[in-house]
């Protein structure tokens, strides 16, 4: 039975064959997919920022914050690897694909947050010994992606 799982920004999903994980609006965010091709189990996360930054004490207004699991690249990848292994994937079979990390606005170009996100993803994946199989990153364009867990193929759509 084919099942389509839609994830929003800051969310993650783990599933097995027959499912498709779909997300849209990947600008400077990153969409990281993990796949075990032997067991046909995988997961993906739509993360926003490279790492958690402690809120400044000087901030006068701190609103109540409920952090979602998939907000920060480093934390999200660790959790995602954990979750797919729990679901039955083998660590040595895992391969990753990275989508996103573009730099959308010239006015913010100094920040390079998109490439920071990609670098953070590569770094944590390397640390966890998960090879990155392919990437569709950078540029000045928004992307949406479809991750097919039947075969591990990630379809990337860009607006033209």
């Amino acid at each position: 039975m084919e099942q389509v799982i839609n994830i929003n920004t800051g969310e993650m999903a783990v599933a097995n064959h027959g499912s498709t994980i779909v997300t849209s609006g990947i600008g400077s965010c990153v969409f990281i997919c993990l796949y075990d091709h032997v067991n046909k189990i995988g997961g993906a996360v739509h993360a926003m920022l490279p790492t958690r930054v402690a809120p400044k004490k000087s901030d006068a207004f701190i609103f109540e914050e409920r952090d979602s699991v998939g907000k920060y690249v480093d934390e999200a990848v660790v959790k995602l690897v954990d979750d797919v292994i729990k679901m039955g994937a083998k660590k040595e079979n895992l391969k990753a694909k990275i989508v996103g990390g573009s730099s959308m606005f010239k006015v913010f170009d100094t920040s390079k947050i998109g490439s920071d996100n990609v670098k953070a993803a590569e770094k944590i994946l390397q640390l966890l010994n998960v090879p990155v199989k392919s990437e569709s990153t950078g540029g000045h364009i928004g992307r949406s992606a479809k991750f097919n867990l039947e075969n591990g193929i990630v379809e990337v759509m860009v607006r033209m």
Partner: peptide, 27 residues
């Protein structure tokens, strides 16, 4: 600042703006 013009899907734009702000804050 000077204006920057971007044509893209609405959610890509919103998410990317969110990230720029989000470097300093969660909300």
């Amino acid at each position: 600042s000077v204006a920057d013009v971007v044509t893209d899907t609405a959610d890509s734009i919103m998410n990317s703006v969110a990230i720029e702000i989000g470097k300093a804050t969660g909300v």
